[in-house]
Write a protein that binds this DNA or RNA. Structure first.
Lengths: 215, 215
DNA sequence: CAATATTGGAAAGTGATACTCTCCAAAAGT
DNA sequence: ACTTTTGGAGAGTATCACTTTCCAATATTG
């Protein structure tokens, strides 16, 4: 197909496709003569993946580029890809206090998680805890453990639902679940927060009517 | 204190503080003469809150402004504040297919969550599910339920840990937990994903060594 | 075969966001 | 008297993710 069809089928403007090509996010099509290139289904898939990561996953194009580089690294095992994708998704100027780092290490040890000791996700978590402390909010150990056990449940379910078919498919699914599962989990958490808040702080008659009407 | 001290204690440049004042994110200090204003602890708190929401929560200044407006609306009950904060945190151009909306409504009903039928978080979740479908990934019902029950656990723990003291403190904590708890949960989820992946896809001897060494 | 449309490619322009810098005159400190 | 700081306002800057404009080389269409 030509670029026009690629654009129509993905709903991405031609100018944007050209931009992604220039930026190396999308493989060039097969060159046919000097002014024409042919694109195929792989371009459609890739383009849809890029848009999903950007629009729903909220990734910058720079991060998308890093993630795609890992997806295309055929030599990597799945477990490596997951780590690499996590690495690509993480900010690179992370710092955390030793105290929070120790707290994270202790938690990882407590749950017996098999996580590289130099995993940047450890630092990311520690930095998030620091951010909370900085605004004067201390995350209690039992609340932290509630987060951790919920996270463990989610992660187990996610990983066990990954297909075991061909590598390309599994890797793409891994990326999609990692990047787009977050928003799903956060949206559900907020719905659940609204419920928890309604139950704790009580709901007025009109509120209750709305809620019941919704069911 | 003068603006210089406010800047030093919060590590926010004077120019940025002035910018926040112009943008109405920060209340003006008490004017002392034509060229001086006095700031107090409330300015320090507010400034730290703004930076935490921006830097760690990843909010835009526009969203921070909306959130702060709700924090300062003294007349609102806590439950209302939570809903309003969620509203302020949500993108405003959401669309979702009817199918996903129904799926979300069914899930909310199944869990018996007391959530306004017009809550934008419903649409946000539906839109997230649509995004997954669009890249050809269907979120199984049992995986969705795994997310939902994890979300319920987290939300219950979060809400039950909110202090019941003065309103200002509770409201701020609500905002902080809502905005900064997300990153904590996501970081833990990724650590747990690494563990789940290591267990499912097996780990090499060197990998295992790293993991054990970390504990 | 002529008129029109499309393409690849590159450069320049755009709009939003979040600052950051420069000035200034009025005060405050020394 | 002299240096420093402040409030206030406007202009400037950097980044990001496009979007527009241009071109000459084809393709397609009538």
């Amino acid at each position: 197909m030509w670029i026009a069809e690629l654009s129509q089928r993905t709903e991405v403007p031609v100018a944007t496709i050209k931009y992604y090509l220039r930026e190396g996010l999308l493989e060039p099509g097969e060159s046919v003569g000097a002014t024409r290139s042919r694109y195929d289904e792989s371009h459609i898939r890739r383009l849809r993946l890029i848009r999903a990561l950007v629009e729903s996953g909220g990734l910058s194009l720079a991060r998308v580029r890093s993630v795609l580089a890992e997806v295309d690294e055929e030599s990597h095992e799945l477990h490596e890809v997951l780590g690499a994708v996590h690495g690509a998704l993480i900010p690179n100027d992370l710092t955390a206090t030793d105290e929070s780092r120790r707290r994270v290490d202790a938690l990882v040890a407590q749950y017996g998680w098999l996580v590289y000791s130099e995993s940047q996700d450890r630092v990311l978590l520690a930095a998030s805890l620091d951010a909370l402390e900085k605004v004067g909010y201390h995350l209690d150990d039992d609340l932290l453990e509630a987060y951790a056990s919920a996270a463990a449940q989610v992660a187990d379910a996610e990983v066990s639902h990954l297909p075991s078919g061909d590598r390309q498919q599994t890797v793409e699914d891994t990326v999609v679940v990692t990047a787009l599962g977050g928003p799903v989990l956060l949206a559900l958490r907020r719905l659940a927060q609204q419920d928890a808040s309604a139950r704790r702080y009580g709901i007025s008659p009109t509120t209750a009517a709305c809620a019941v009407q919704a069911e």
